[in-house]
Design a protein around this nucleic acid. Structure first.
Lengths: 336, 336
DNA sequence: ACAACGCAATGAATCGTTTCATAACGTGCT
DNA sequence: AGCACGTTATGAAACGATTCATTGCGTTGT
């Protein structure tokens, strides 16, 4: 026999299956004598509850799905940690899926989570998933969007104000005297990228004579950043920007590598550089990177909190949008 | 009704539940006419299979558990990616748990995976888990150890030869003329740490007049590394090592930060530094870090391969130990 | 015309747990 | 003694998908 069931335990202890279940779930309803007999039978048989059967009976699982844009990005590992810690307190498990900024993979994970009847979904969306989420909600699976503000007020969300962050970053570059700014980031379909760019543009407005150029990348990774950095390095000096705002720190780290290859361009003397997220490695880069800090773990735990609240909610539940302010961290890469 | 079941679909399509199941699992057994009716009923009701019920009936899930020492370590995210990609090909899902180098959390994840009746477990172990794994095996859940060679030949494992890696690292430091080596790493209970240290000691043997000192850390993180680096920086110059071998790259990045704080110690002039894992950020550090490269994703996919083979195996299955060779990557942090 | 065969479709049984209406038993009260 | 009540324990039903032995039909061959 591969594994014992309640039935086996009941037989060995000389009680009914219902009683075994009571021992497991309502120990206070059971006499000390029976309790002991059942416990010893459980130990003897090495009985382990079958989660599938529990779930089937319960109609819902004790898991929560989380889909992140990039599992290798420290921002998201931190966020996941925040969510997991919070979930553990309520005896929930978090299943983490990595969409890799790919709408198909994102959709595949949502399918999987739906089949698993998860209690709810935390999602940092790639494309326009609102219709899909409405469908999930109709099935009783609530969603909280993370790292993304929604214009759609019927969904809860937890995010950092990326517009303000983008504005902050570029305002800082302007304040240290730079005027030919390049924004490195993409794909533009990712909301965070779009918002940070909008913020950047907003910061440009009050300053005349300053220009902002967009260098689009395929993804928000070190590799994409390096490619962008190299492309800029190879330009004639006159056509290079004097400051770069990268849409996240992975890109910034890559851009830095790309710029400095073969004794290339000096940072910040020739080009100043600022990233976004303030991951642990930003401070440890060749030239310590200025960045925009986000409270990653807090975003995760807050999102989970909202999700649990919504999952337990009465029909008249009101979704809420939480927005945390970002914070500018200045390091060597933008020092005058 | 929150969600439709096969019974609802059957009723709407005017067929039996068995037929609906056939449409789902053996479409070739079903006539085109019925097929179409069932499909349209599925669409109309928005039917989604209940995974718990499938699993219960099947007796086993389509998931594989993976417990890593540190989800924030790029080495493990890469490893996980390798495993997930391989698993996806066989329509398996990987559940990732983060033990955080804590034996209790490791054990909690193993419990969870057992309750979920996962098909197998991939584990980078914290302490001595062999007895626990033997118990799992008796229940029909095989394990493959990752990033760890076992002396216990009854378990499969996939690892990099950490002894050789440690030896390689220190031999390199010696070859660039360093003689007062410090090994930064810990806790010593982690096998990778112990092995890399053993390798380091082995490299010392043939060289007379060289010394190796051990600086123990609480964990393999940037933070622990920074603390160790600062401690070394604060020593009188004469008592400092002239080279540091850090047990992994996160530590090395931290050590580098610690050493360089407040215009501190020059790397590599005063102290050379080498890490382990060759994570993407190693090349992007303040001083690009030398490191020992491991084929992370390959380790993950190979481990999953072995696991699936073992899960499907006949009674007389032979476990195998795969060991990949590490590779020295020299960068500025150890240049003469 | 009838037997034999193959293909579709059926539906009851099954997986392991939880729930809940019911039974059994002992205690205290009248 | 008889009754009511509270405490434990019981076991059948339910969750939803899958399986498989069985039935129902239409074809083919003799």
């Amino acid at each position: 026999m591969v594994s014992a069931s309640v039935k086996d335990v009941a037989a060995l202890a000389g009680v009914s299956v219902g009683t075994v279940s009571n021992v497991l779930n309502r120990p206070e309803k059971v006499s000390a004598d029976v309790m002991a007999r059942v416990q010893s039978a459980i130990d003897k048989l090495g009985f382990v509850r079958n989660d599938a059967a529990r779930q089937l009976r319960a109609g819902m699982s004790h898991s929560i799905g989380l889909v992140v844009l990039d599992a290798a990005n420290p921002f998201f590992t931190e966020l996941a940690r925040g969510a997991e810690d919070r979930a553990a307190k309520e005896h929930f498990t978090v299943l983490v899926g990595n969409s890799n900024e790919d709408a198909d993979r994102e959709s595949a994970y949502l399918d999987l989570f739906e089949q698993q009847r998860v209690r709810g979904v935390l999602l940092s969306p790639v494309g326009n998933v609102i219709p899909r989420l409405e469908q999930l909600r109709r099935r009783g699976i609530p969603t909280v969007l993370v790292d993304r503000q929604t214009e759609n007020l019927s969904f809860s969300s937890v995010a950092v104000d990326d517009l303000a962050g983008g504005e902050m970053a570029v305002a800082h570059l302007l304040s240290v005297g730079r005027r030919r700014i390049a924004f490195v980031g993409g794909p533009a379909s990712i909301r965070q990228v779009a918002d940070r760019l909008s913020g950047a543009l907003k910061a440009m407005e009050p300053v005349s004579g300053a220009t902002l150029e967009v260098v689009e990348t395929d993804s928000l990774t070190v590799l994409s950043g390096r490619a962008a950095g190299e492309a800029i390095r190879r330009r004639p000096a006159a056509e290079r920007p004097d400051a770069i705002f990268a849409a996240n720190d992975l890109l910034a780290v890559g851009v830095l590598q790309g710029l400095m290859l073969m004794g290339g361009i000096r940072v910040p003397e020739e080009i100043a550089l600022i990233g976004y997220d303030d991951i642990e490695f930003a401070a440890a880069a060749v030239v310590p990177l200025s960045s925009i800090r986000q409270p990653s773990a807090l975003i995760g735990s807050t999102a989970l909190e909202l999700l649990l609240r919504e999952a337990a909610a009465e029909p008249g539940f009101e979704p809420s949008q939480v927005v945390f302010p970002p914070e500018l961290v200045v390091r060597a890469s933008t020092r005058e």
